[in-house]
Amino acid sequence: MMDVLIETRGLTRNYGEICALKPLDLRVNNGEWLSIMGHSGSGKSTLLNLLGGLDRPSDGFIRVGGEDLRVLSEDGMARYRREFVGIIFQQHHLIPYLTAVENIMMAQYFHSVPDEAEARTALERVGLGHRLKNRPGELSGGEQQRVCIARAIINSPRLLLGDEPTGNLDHGSTRVVMELLSELRAEEQFTIIMVTHNHEVAAWGDRTIYLDDGVMVREELKGD
């Protein structure tokens, strides 16, 4: 039996009058790839923020890797984000005046100490060994997203969160990025939770859940 990495019960997030996420029960296994689909405003990003420790629930229970995120202090939450979670955004948020390798080292710096050799190796793993010294502006969209992946995995997170990571990419680049993520998951054994609008992208996951108006309306396993 696979062990459970994420467990939520009645997880809720309200913003004043608006209920962005209605009580949600969810279990994600260690090493699983979960895709989350839904329309804009369906609560996908809210769920992702709660799982990534970027936001706190209004109510309900949420446990990730044995940590009860409701009771973690601010310092504990920061440590959780630093050591447990890696995030890939649609807008990659790379620092424009730093080179690719320096962007990775920045993530190492916030985690612990920078290590250039390790940062180079990480970029080589995502196929950017020849673009180490290029700044984000000199890279294509797909390459930028690969730098983001290298940045997200450099600190060996157990949970990788993707917020529409291929939203800005063409078909070819999307495929390259998804293949890369798939390979890395096989090597590193991390869990992926990825929010997407794209059915093709969602199909890379082991399971897909559909949210609508803050409620999980459907769940599909791979091959269904």
Partner: peptide, 14 residues
């Protein structure tokens, strides 16, 4: 053999 673990340990020592 894991970079992040190594760095965490180094950081703790520093």
């Amino acid at each position: 053999r894991q970079g992040a673990e190594r760095r965490t340990l180094l950081k703790a020592h520093i």
